[in-house]
Simulated assay, not measured.
Amino acid sequence: MASTSESIQSIARTQEERILLTQIAQKAETCREKCYLTYTKFLDMHETALADRLLRSLGERGVFWGGYEQAERRILFFVPDWMDAVPTEGEDCPITAIRCLRSKNDALTHRDYLGSLMGLGLRRDGIGDILVSDHGADILVLKDIAPYLLMNYSQAGRKHIQTQEISLADLVMPDEKITMLRDTVASMRLDAVTASLFRLSRAKAADAIRAGKVFVNQQECIRTDKEIAPHDRITLRGTGRGEVEEILGESKKGRIVLSLKRFG
Rank of each mutant, 00 (worst) to 15 (best):
C35G: 09
Q23R: 12
T14F: 06
I209G: 06
L258N: 07
I166S: 04
K204G: 01
R124I: 02
F215N: 01
R233T: 11
A85T: 09
L76Y: 05
L131E: 07
R182I: 01
D52N: 13
F215D: 02
M173K: 02
D207Y: 09
I95W: 00
I178A: 03
Q23N: 15
K41Y: 14
R233S: 09
I127A: 03
C100T: 03
L55S: 05
L114H: 08
S5L: 15
R124S: 15
A186Q: 07
K143T: 10
V141C: 03
T109W: 14
E220M: 14
Y68C: 05
H231S: 13
A107W: 07
Q218S: 06
D134Q: 12
P174T: 03
E6R: 12
Q26P: 00
L101G: 03
K159P: 02
H110R: 01
K253D: 13
L200N: 02
V193Q: 03
R56N: 13
Q15H: 10
L248Q: 13
Y68K: 06
T38Q: 13
G67V: 00
R199F: 15
D52H: 09
R210W: 09
L50G: 08
E165K: 02
K159A: 09
L58F: 05
D112C: 12
A211T: 03
S5P: 05
V86H: 05
D170H: 04
E29V: 12
L58D: 04
M151I: 02
T22F: 15
T194C: 12
R123H: 10
K253P: 10
H231T: 11
A192W: 08
Y68F: 13
E176M: 14
Q26D: 11
L120H: 14
F77P: 01
E16L: 11
A12V: 08
E245M: 12
L43A: 11
D134E: 15
S259F: 06
Q164Y: 13
D106Y: 07
A71D: 00
M118G: 11
G128M: 14
T109Q: 12
